[in-house]
């Protein structure tokens, strides 16, 4: 390959008090949107933190934009080109929405006031917050705060965008807006998107990485992951306790995801969620009622 990948992780391992949060992870990312799926505690946040250079790996190598960020100069050079939305994103007290993004812009070396304010307004418009920018952050809703966090990650149109659950608490209408923003960003930048929402991944990503127990369980095209569930999803009249998962859908029938067809069932079109449940196997063995 002649193009230098934006992110190249080789054998990255990170342990916290003996438990491996990441265990020998190899990952190469180039332009486009990659979805990162996995249950809680799978290591998604650790992977994003390490890629965002805010956490050093215990072992393995992290290469970003073709350089290993070892010295302060290289670290700053890498950080100039990345935007990061952490999972836990608080806001210092007393800021307005505009003031907070402005503060982050100063940290991102936008020293000229006029240019910085123009950029802050641009990203606030992108996430559809320009109308409430003069309000205090404490007066904003959870979804608005999440979008504010996304706005600061978008400052300066970064080449690498790392987003840890950007759509938490965001209503469906806003989620569509965010998808538009992200898909536009994915045209030229490398976007790594950690989420619990398989619909987001299905709607946005060309590639999906599934983490479980600190290891990469799947890395490939979204369509390929969905294809693994072909012939293993059915609609039945009764729940199937032997299946990986089965739940009552809004139509009154039961969606069954498993290895064997229950009696009287008809095959159904698999979704990314079905494939994800099958991949995680026994972890997802649940029988419940879904709305």
């Amino acid at each position: 390959m002649t193009v230098v990948p934006t992110v190249a992780l080789t054998g990255v391992t990170k342990r916290f008090r003996g438990t491996a949060a990441l265990d020998d992870v190899h990952l190469t990312l180039g332009p486009g949107i990659t979805g990162l799926l996995g249950p809680n505690g799978a290591g998604k946040t650790t992977l994003l933190r390490i890629t965002a250079t805010v956490l050093t790996p215990g072992a393995g190598e992290v290469v970003l934009f073709g350089t290993r960020p070892a010295g302060p100069e290289q670290l700053a050079a890498v950080r100039r080109r990345l935007g990061y939305l952490p999972q836990e994103m608080g806001h210092p007290r007393g800021f307005t929405g505009f003031g907070f993004v402005d503060y982050m812009a100063v940290l991102k070396e936008w020293t000229d006031r006029a240019a910085r304010h123009a950029e802050v307004r641009r990203v606030l418009e992108l996430v559809d917050l320009d109308g409430v920018a003069a309000r205090r952050v404490s007066a904003l809703s959870g979804g608005q705060r999440r979008r504010l966090g996304l706005a600061q990650a978008l400052l300066g149109d970064p080449d690498l965008l790392l987003l840890d659950e950007p759509t938490t608490g965001v209503d469906p209408g806003q989620r569509v807006t965010l998808r538009q923003v992200l898909s536009r960003a994915g045209e030229r930048s490398t976007v790594l998107l950690s989420t619990h929402q398989t619909e987001d991944v299905a709607a946005l990503c060309d590639r999906v990485v599934v983490l479980d127990g600190g290891r990469v369980r799947f890395d490939g095209a979204v369509a390929d992951l969905v294809a693994t569930a072909a012939g293993r999803v059915w609609l039945a009249d009764a729940p199937d306790p032997a299946a990986r998962a089965s739940w009552r859908t809004g139509t009154g029938r039961h969606r069954v995801v498993g290895q064997a067809a229950p009696a009287g069932a008809e095959p159904a079109e698999p979704t990314l969620e079905d494939a994800y449940l099958l991949l995680l196997g026994e972890r997802a063995r649940t029988t419940g009622v879904a709305a």
């Binding site: 805010v54 700053a76 050079a77 990345l82 806001h91 940290l107």
Partner: peptide
């Protein structure tokens, strides 16, 4: 002191 500390760390400001 700064609830946005983690995001601030990922910026180039020393």
């Amino acid at each position: 002191a700064d609830p946005s500390h983690e995001a601030a760390l990922a910026t180039p400001y020393p």
